[in-house]
Amino acid sequence: MTGASAYPAAPAMITDRMAVLRRNWRRVLHNRAATIGGAIVLFWLCMALMAPFLAPYSPTAQRVANRLKPPNAQHVFGTDELGRDIFSRVLYGARVSLPVALAVVAMSGALGVLLGAIAGYTGGLLDEIVMRIADAVLAFPSLILAIAITAALGPGLQNAALAIALVLWPEYARLIRSQVIALREMEFVSAATALGATRRRALFKHILPNALPLMLVKASLDMGNAILLTASLSFVGLGAVPPTPEWGAMVAAGRHKFFEWWLAAFPGLAIFSAVVGFNFLGDGLRDLLDPRMSRRG
């Protein structure tokens, strides 16, 4: 009887979950920042996925006879000093910048959350060591430290991504540490511990799931920061290696050509729009996940 009575409740549970999903979806649509940011991010994700089908030319094919052509019917964004189509390179640049930014956020977030959560929950000497290392990293400007690490490792997108991750992890560590310290004193954690939950289970099963929404907001905001830092390293020659179509390297190629404005303008606009999109999305997610932070009026 008990097993049979459980089955009629399943459709009701599914209906309740669908109602929650619809309610959350309406909240997203009514949040202007989340809607605009999500649309911009979705646009660039589609451009990155569809680049092989949308790009009219190869991003690395050189046509010297067409070098430095302004925007026209054949090349809507013009061509660069080697005759390469800038529109095609901007599209393929999304396939470089977005995955690198995602890898940076994943590495820095995983490292920072792990160290910060363990340090905040255990306290003592381990907490002191982790936080002092984080303070030492945060004492340096992010870009300068990333340049120094990448210069030591050698140019390349992989080394640039690793360097940026090593620069950004302390922010996650400090943020998650403060959340863990606040949550570990809550009643539901004390109840779980009283019922026999180990320290590891209390941390990873009860505390971290309640702190992760804030990490999601932080990660979405850091996607824009990671795109900027990657472009900056490529701009100074420490990121993408030619002929990789990366937005920062494309801006660097046109920085001395004032009259050929299209060389830097279009990849620069791509960087600007992608960063704004992720910032708007993060701002909207913050409002949705934390009603106390929502705007009024």
Rank of each mutant, 00 (worst) to 15 (best):
M47I: 06
R26K: 14
M107S: 01
V251D: 02
P56D: 04
F278K: 02
A148E: 02
A240H: 03
A106T: 15
L168Q: 10
M215G: 06
A103H: 05
L166F: 11
R17T: 01
A4S: 09
G93K: 09
Y92A: 05
P291G: 05
L68D: 15
L153W: 03
R255W: 10
A61V: 14
L98Q: 09
I129A: 05
F235E: 00
W262R: 00
G156V: 05
T230H: 07
I164L: 00
L29V: 12
I36R: 01
F235I: 00
V180T: 11
N66W: 14
V28R: 12
W25I: 13
A12C: 01
Q158C: 02
A34C: 11
I271A: 03
R174Y: 07
A19I: 08
V76N: 08
N24W: 15
R132Q: 02
A173D: 10
W169K: 05
Q179E: 12
I147P: 08
S88D: 13
L145T: 01
A240M: 10
K257T: 06
A101L: 04
V41H: 03
G224R: 00
A136I: 14
M215E: 03
A9P: 00
G237Q: 03
L42W: 12
V180A: 05
M215K: 03
A265Q: 00
N24E: 15
E185I: 06
G124I: 08
W262G: 00
N279G: 07
V100D: 11
K257W: 14
D80H: 13
A39V: 15
A264L: 05
V20G: 13
P141L: 07
G123E: 04
P141C: 00
A211K: 12
R296G: 06
A192G: 08
P56C: 06
P155H: 04
G109T: 05
D16M: 11
F272M: 11
P56H: 07
P213A: 11
W169Q: 03
T35A: 13
L114A: 14
P245K: 11
A191Q: 14
A106Y: 13
L125V: 15
G224E: 10
D127I: 04
S190M: 12
F77D: 09
E171V: 13
A6E: 12
P56M: 08
E128M: 10
T79C: 06
P70A: 15
L288S: 03
L168T: 03
L115I: 08
P243R: 01
R95E: 02
N159W: 12
R23F: 02
L221I: 01
A61F: 15
I147L: 11
M215V: 15
G284V: 00
T122M: 05
A103R: 06
A194Y: 14
I144D: 03
F204V: 13
P291Q: 05
R177D: 09
A231V: 06
G93I: 13
L49A: 14
L212P: 01
K257P: 02
L168E: 09
R295W: 11
I149L: 09
G37L: 07
F53R: 02
L98S: 04
A48F: 09
G78Q: 10
R95F: 08
P170E: 06
F280E: 07
R84Q: 10
M107Q: 01
